[in-house]
Write a protein that binds this DNA or RNA. Structure first.
Lengths: 344, 344
DNA sequence: TTCGGTGATGAAAACGTTTACATTCTGGGC
DNA sequence: GCCCAGAATGTAAACGTTTTCATCACCGAA
């Protein structure tokens, strides 16, 4: 392995001068700098990050602790984070697939000490978890997690607002008998979406709602769709807590020969790519996932500045309704939920 | 920040003993070990990776240099890599979105010195690039890149074999007048797919082929589809070099009222999630992307062992034809391309 | 009792880099 | 001709950890 000493010897200067030259310090003669740079490239010198980090106390890396990497959501999220990180000259360390809290704890511990800050998104985190496994000195930002925990800022998706906007849309189209296919109980997003729906329905005279269980899978959506058709009172419109369930529900309707949107309207949440290609294309709520990742990283960078460490706050990323054919209104309007920023 | 010294003081032992205890060395009394562990958790001690790496000369991290993070392909790839890395106790550093060779070079340089090995997938790499920007001491594996370069092992997708298998499938169904929608010229995968198609057609008496330009986008597939319909000799079957173009082509056919597969058969390549949901569902070639990532990481780990550094070789990951409705044969057979392993 | 062996612990060097401080050199003002 | 300022470069300490080697205490055998 070739070190800074080798370069120094090759260029006939001290290691200090090499360090200065390669790090762009002002006070080194152009001719010396050129000589050093030539030596460095000749030897294929690449500085050892560990040694540098040891003395600068900066790793120039941030970690992202995610529950999984599967599917479009995380792909987009990582993309948003990566773009923002690259713009800041930061490396991105990803860690995923933690089935239980223990595994998440191990992953979080392993990351600390090798990154300057952490982005955390995990169903297992709560105040106690963080107190136990997150060093006080590690800057962190929570993504789409239960709010108001400890010293961490949060960046959340406006699931509530998105669900409200979609429900308003359905009501505006004249639907009054509504059904909602729920996501997994343990999932905060799913609960928020349900809450948005429920509350909006409650505010509308003459509207009523009916709830079916689901777990975000296509299959559970399919079963919910069959249950809806076999039930006595068939709704005017169905709002599924995510697109995959809406797709499954749509299969059930298609199978039974029930026309969407003519006989029944259908809406989803997430705007996954498939939503555009279903028959009919799915009206859904678009989540700006990459933007979420970007915002989270920027907030983390702010947290990493030693100077101004603002109070832990909550940023909420807006969603928007994307109107396609599955609800009967083909106008390509986009209704946006409000973007809000609540300092704690 | 709390260091190993603080723990040592708290536990009233030397730093050496703390290090031994926390790293599971055999020769430390259970009672001492317990005392040290208590002290460590009490102080929220987390060892500093940089310092450790400096002395052990291991970062316990690998880097993945990818052209982009967008879409299902990279999501799956990263997932495969991450899973394998986690199983090996390695961290994963991702880096992406390098528009040009310069940017790729910067990313590659920045990674070295902070990882134990690199997975490289980029349109910009060639022998000269690697010689210039990859330190001799950095283990590396090339993903789906031009083969036989320098000392790096390669892990490739069997694009050629997959295209052959699909073409054989089309021929077996009795189609003789074939059309192929090409991918971007610069893309090696796309060229290999075309080569597999071309060669297989050439081997079949009475079969003939017709080629259309495309660039992997849905739109280019749509245009190709329109061109096909307006042409004089309409083919029996169309094979698009990727699924997105097949989807676009399908839109053109649907729009024109041309029935798939009754009037014309259509096949794609990649088996992206949308392929299952098109109408009719798309017959395509499934690429085991996660497995590709897994294999690449395992090969890299082997390369990282100082002991047995085998010759740079080429591993080729097989593909399989997934028969859905779009080619007229609904039997859910899967025909697999051979998995081959060519030592150089 | 003495001695060698063994098992636990401590002292200190080493890793590659940055950076505060020291040193040397240059040129210009007196 | 002398001195001083400032620029360029060198010297060495520091960063937090692992690990080699030394030390120490204890135990059993002679």
């Amino acid at each position: 392995m070739v070190t800074i000493k080798d370069v120094a010897r090759e260029a006939k200067v001290s290691v200090a001068t090499v360090s200065r030259a390669l790090n762009g310090s002002a006070d080194v003669t152009p001719v010396t700098r050129a000589r050093i740079e030539r030596a460095a490239t000749r030897l294929h010198y690449v500085p050892m990050g560990a040694a540098r980090s040891l003395v600068t106390r900066r790793t120039q890396a941030v970690g992202a602790l995610l529950p999984d990497l599967f599917g479009e959501f995380f792909s987009e999220l990582i993309r948003g984070i990566d773009l923002a990180a690259r713009a800041r000259g930061l490396h991105l360390l990803v860690s995923s697939s933690h089935g239980d809290a223990d595994e998440a704890a191990r992953a979080l511990r392993a990351m600390q000490g090798r990154v300057d800050g952490v982005l955390i998104m995990s169903p297992h985190v709560d105040a106690a978890f963080l107190r136990k496994h997150l060093a006080d000195s590690t800057p962190a930002v929570l993504l789409d997690s239960a709010p108001r925990e400890r010293r961490c800022p949060h960046v959340n998706i406006d699931n509530y607002g998105g669900a409200r906007a979609m429900t308003r849309h359905l009501l505006a189209l004249g639907h009054r008998k509504l059904a909602f296919i729920e996501g997994p109980e343990a999932n905060r997003d799913a609960r928020e979406r349900r809450r948005g729906f429920e509350q909006t329905v409650a505010e509308c005279r003459g509207a009523n709602a009916h709830y079916l269980k689901g777990d975000y899978t296509e299959e559970s959506g399919y079963h919910a769709g069959r249950a809806l058709l076999s039930g006595r009172k068939r709704p005017d419109a169905v709002f599924a807590a995510n697109d995959m369930m809406a797709i499954g529900c749509l299969s059930a309707f298609n199978e039974a020969g029930v026309q969407v949107p003519d006989e029944i309207a259908l809406a989803g949440f997430d705007d996954i790519p498939i939503a555009r290609y279903s028959h009919p294309p799915l009206t859904t709520v678009h989540v700006r996932i990459a933007q979420l990742g970007h915002a989270a990283l920027e907030r983390l960078v702010m947290q990493m500045q030693p100077l101004d460490k603002p109070e832990a706050d909550v940023t909420t990323m807006s969603c928007e309704v994307v109107v396609r054919a599955s609800c009967g209104s083909h106008a390509n309007a986009r209704m946006q939920s409000k973007k809000i920023h609540i300092p704690t």
